[in-house]
Amino acid sequence: QVNIAPGSLDKALNQYAAHSGFTLSVDASLTRGKQSNGLHGDYDVESGLQQLLDGSGLQVKPLGNNSWTLEP
């Protein structure tokens, strides 16, 4: 069960990665100043990332080996 409060997208993504045990490689300029609506409930990694990114204009991309990145 994930419980991440709304706020900074950077912070939300870092909390989610730490909670879910995956690696997220992101260029900080992509997420700077963006906000997230947070995340509450049970999600697989990709669904949770998509939910956190909702409205940010960013997309999640798998890199393999439980690693992910973001792209515009």
Rank of each mutant, 00 (worst) to 15 (best):
Q1G: 12
V2L: 09
N3S: 11
A5P: 14
A5D: 10
P6A: 12
S8T: 10
D10Q: 12
K11I: 13
K11E: 15
K11Y: 14
A12H: 01
A12P: 00
A12C: 15
A12E: 01
A12V: 15
N14L: 15
Q15Y: 09
Y16S: 01
A18H: 09
A18L: 13
H19G: 06
G21I: 04
G21F: 06
T23I: 11
L24R: 00
S25E: 14
S25F: 15
S25H: 14
D27Q: 07
A28L: 11
A28M: 10
L30K: 00
L30W: 05
L30N: 04
T31K: 01
T31Q: 01
T31P: 04
T31A: 03
T31F: 06
R32V: 15
G33Q: 03
K34N: 03
K34I: 10
Q35D: 08
S36A: 06
S36K: 00
S36H: 06
S36L: 02
N37C: 14
G38N: 03
L39E: 01
L39R: 01
L39D: 03
H40P: 00
H40N: 12
G41W: 04
G41C: 05
G41L: 03
D42H: 14
Y43I: 04
Y43C: 07
D44C: 08
V45W: 12
V45G: 03
E46W: 14
S47T: 12
G48Q: 00
G48N: 03
G48L: 05
G48Y: 04
L49Y: 00
Q50I: 13
Q50F: 08
Q51P: 01
Q51R: 12
L52G: 01
L52S: 01
L53N: 00
D54I: 15
D54G: 09
D54Y: 14
G55W: 02
G57Q: 05
G57Y: 04
L58F: 04
Q59D: 08
Q59L: 11
Q59W: 09
Q59V: 14
K61E: 01
P62A: 13
P62D: 10
N65P: 13
N66K: 06
S67Y: 09
W68I: 05
T69A: 12
T69W: 06
T69M: 11
T69R: 09
L70D: 01
L70R: 03
E71S: 08
P72K: 11
